[in-house]
Design a protein around this nucleic acid. Structure first.
Length: 523
RNA sequence: GGCCCUAUCGUCUAGUGGCCUAGGACGUGGCCCUCUCAAGGCCAAGACUCGGGUUCAAAUCCCGAUAGGGUCACCA
């Protein structure tokens, strides 16, 4: 049997990270078994701009590298893959169910249904429809319609026995039929509902394994009833534990960002990304820029492999120690049997840690390619040789491609480089601590200027050597002196090695910037 | 409320009756390294929801309680 799995997003305008986890498991399972992964579009809602709302979702999948063999954009032999184009198929199925007695016309008014349910709630009974407005025959239909009622089609669920199925994650599941509601499969306007469409689509598209979120576990009995009524074979089922919000077991929601930001770890990751967004002129509104959405990670330069690596471990594990997986390894190792049953909450800090490791392992040339677009977006330019030097010097400090903008002081015009004399003085004091004499900030800057102008060749090693010589001559410590150098040439008090920084900057720029600091101190 | 699902460090998890004085990872704290910031190395704190059974032996099996989640729609 060919393994065929699917993911069926609604065109909502964004790709949710929980959805990606589900899609990933489907994709991995299909790839592992040499099967197909199908991307079907759940657009029964008939929104106006499906295309527009679908684009970010397709983009997200493409960025992640989760390719689909059939479905949206690519087509395939079992289409159409948009539910909005499949209405005739659904209607045929409804007619078949009606004819075989698995479904019936129902004429309950909304308020009547509501009243029944409320009564059941009050009397603590299961909420099961009384079938009071069920049409037994055509005469009934005419009578109800004469009363001005509108008919919908409901399924006639069994009222005894149990529904039994095997779930690859949960094992055997049994639920009494008597607790299952007669759900609507065709609305009074003729459109069909999710459960019906889902069953018909899965059959038509020859889906072998239905791998989906746990919230659908409760849908399974009615879908089984439907597919058996239609004479379809049963697929295999696997219900994945939900992805919960940070620090709780509640369902992850993109609207609750303000609440999540109260979590310090969540906030750290968000703030880090926000800084990059601000420098590249991205729309950083919560609608568009949100750690619950995949686009967030793409926009600030995360690696798809890192995001996937984190997600595969959200509800699945291989053993007691393996954490790092390449895509190939994920495909090889994945199995439904090792999916965890309990909910897993999203920990973006851990995702960040995976990103850091993946980024460290990335070859320099690939880093170069990832980093360039961010420079461009910030309106900065750099020759390749300089960028290479920079990436080498930055090393593991570059966690995300957008972090390159941390070093914008290397590209910015000299006028835009500030100088914090107070901070420089602090380093100076540290440099002369324990010494009986001390130079003024102006004097030190002048001497540092000499260090820079006399360095030949102009590289980190020479710069270091000369600064150390100066320190020795003046009875100071070289370390803090290099901080003064950093402050004067970058305006920052943090960054990679000060000597590397100088070397990348080049002699001319260093001199201009130190001179500028000097005038500030003396003026 | 009915039905269903779940329950190990703050978080993700390992664990399928004795290898468990419960292992790994993220995070946290400390130390080392160090020109700052990272990275790296070392160390530490930190969990079997509770109560009954079964058993020579239970995180592991059974029952109950508790807690959390899902679902009961003319949403998907």
């Amino acid at each position: 049997m060919t393994v065929r799995t699917r993911f069926a997003p609604s065109p909502t305008g964004y790709l949710h990270i929980g959805g990606v986890r589900t899609a990933l498991f489907n994709w991995l399972f299909a790839r592992k078994h040499g099967g197909q992964f199908i991307l079907r579009i759940d657009d029964t809602d008939q929104q106006r701009n499906v295309k527009e709302a679908l684009q970010p979702i397709l983009d997200g999948f493409r960025w992640l590298g989760l390719d689909w063999d059939e479905g949206a954009d690519v087509g395939g032999p079992h289409g159409p893959y948009y539910q909005s184009e499949r209405l005739p198929r659904y209607q045929a199925a409804v007619a078949q169910l009606l004819a075989s007695g698995h479904a019936y016309w129902d004429y309950a008014r909304p308020e009547e249904t509501k009243a029944e349910m409320e009564l059941a709630e009050k009397e603590k009974r299961p909420k099961i429809y009384s079938r009071q407005w069920m049409a037994q025959n055509n005469a009934d239909r005419q009578r109800f319609e004469a009363e001005g009622r509108q008919g919908a089609v409901k399924i006639k669920m069994p009222r005894e026995g149990v529904c039994q199925f095997y779930d690859h994650v949960r094992g055997n599941v049994e639920v009494p039929w008597a607790g299952e509601q007669d759900i609507v499969i065709q609305r009074s306007d003729g459109s069909v509902t999710y459960n019906l469409a889902n069953v018909v689509d899965d059959f038509d598209m020859k889906i072998s394994h239905v791998i989906r979120a746990e919230e659908h576990l409760a849908n399974t009995p009615r879908q089984i009833f439907l597919l058996e009524g239609l004479g379809y074979p049963r697929p295999e089922y696997a219900h994945l534990p939900p992805v919960a919000e940070p620090g709780s077991k509640n369902k992850l929601s993109k609207r609750k960002i303000p609440q999540y930001l109260k979590n310090p770890d969540f906030k750290k990751v968000y703030d880090h990304a926000k800084a990059i967004a601000d420098r590249t002129g991205l729309d950083a509104s919560p609608e568009a820029f949100n750690p619950v959405l995949v686009a967030f990670y793409e926009q600030v330069g995360y690696l798809p492999a890192a995001v996937l690596n984190y997600l595969v471990l959200l509800g699945w594990s291989l053993d007691d120690k393996t954490e790092d997986f390449t895509i190939t390894q994920m495909i090889e190792s994945f199995s439904l049997e090792r999916v965890v049953k309990s909910p897993a909450s999203l920990d973006v800090k851990k995702l960040f840690a995976f990103q850091a490791r993946h980024m460290q392992a990335l070859p320099l040339t690939e880093k170069l390619d990832r980093v360039r677009p961010f420079l461009l977006r910030a309106g900065l330019e750099a020759p390749e040789a300089m960028l290479t030097q920079l990436l080498e010097a930055a090393g593991p400090r570059l966690t995300v491609a957008g972090d390159i903008l941390e070093y914008d002081y290397l590209f910015l015009p000299d006028e835009q480089i500030g100088f914090d004399a107070a901070l420089a003085q602090k380093s100076l004091t540290a440099a002369f601590k324990g010494s009986d004499r001390a130079l003024s900030l102006g004097e030190v800057l002048t001497k540092l200027q000499e260090v820079v102008s006399g360095a030949e060749p102009f590289d980190a090693a020479t710069l270091k050597e000369r600064t150390e010589a100066l320190a020795q001559a003046e009875g100071a410590k070289a370390g803090p002196l290099s901080q003064v150098l950093r402050l004067a040439t970058t305006g920052k008090d943090v960054g990679f090695s000060a000597y590397d920084t100088l070397a990348i900057l080049g002699r001319d720029k260093c001199q201009v910037r130190i001179e500028k600091a000097l005038t500030q101190v003396q003026g």
